[in-house]
């Protein structure tokens, strides 16, 4: 659709091609829209690290809902609505978690958490750990398996599971808390 927005029209054409399976068009699109997404996200999120996490979340959402883009309509409002919505969701989520939970930024990916090295002091066998992981709620179990057992990065785990980065972080944090309580009786 021609709207007079040259970038938007080109992105719309790339997205239409990507919907039909053109991976080259899809990669070009994602690289081209990245600065625009960052500008929308950074207007709401000041901290660069957090803004980049939200930007990744927007890219994952674009990927998940790309079948909802209608090539007869302008592309930019579709993208802007997704970016703004996810940025606002992230603001709400951070406000909630800052009030209710304590995060260690290094605890999500394998071995980044110094506490992970405590295993030598813990009288836990592999079987006990396996059983404790199997007992976790499904969402927490999936996060632990992807991030801790298989050692994927947050972005890789997000692509594989279809869950947002924030959801994976919350679930792995809760899983570690549950495992520690069950295996050692210790509160995180």
């Amino acid at each position: 659709m021609q709207t007079g927005d040259r970038d938007g029209d080109r992105w719309g054409a790339f997205m239409a091609a990507a919907q039909d399976g053109d991976r080259h068009a899809y990669e070009t699109l994602l690289r081209e829209i990245l600065p625009y997404i960052r500008s929308v996200v950074r207007a709401l999120h000041g901290r660069p690290e957090r803004a980049e996490e939200v930007t990744q979340d927007v890219l994952l959402t674009v990927h998940r809902v790309r079948h909802t883009y209608d090539p007869t309509r302008p592309f930019r409002p579709w993208l802007a609505a997704i970016a703004r919505r996810r940025a606002i969701d992230a603001l709400r989520r951070h406000r909630h978690t800052e009030v209710h939970e304590v995060f260690d930024e290094y605890a999500y990916e394998t071995f980044a958490d110094a506490a992970a090295n405590k295993h030598a002091e813990m009288p836990t066998t592999a079987e006990e750990l396996r059983a404790a992981i199997a007992d976790l709620p499904a969402q927490q179990r999936e996060a632990v398996q992807l991030l801790k057992v298989r050692g994927l990065s947050l972005a890789e785990a997000s692509v594989e599971s279809g869950k947002s980065i924030a959801a994976l972080k919350v679930n792995v944090h809760r899983a570690i808390k549950t495992l520690r309580r069950r295996l050692t009786g210790e509160e995180l």
């Binding site: 990507a18 039909d20 899809y26 980049e52 990927h63 909802t68």
Partner: peptide
């Protein structure tokens, strides 16, 4: 979370992309 992570994410999404069926008008 760095720019490199974001580029890796784009590569992973592209590698995983399959054709999708567009939704009919609402």
């Amino acid at each position: 979370m760095t720019d490199d992570d974001t580029m890796r994410l784009i590569e992973a999404l592209t590698a995983k992309a399959q054709p999708v069926k567009r939704l009919r008008p609402p």
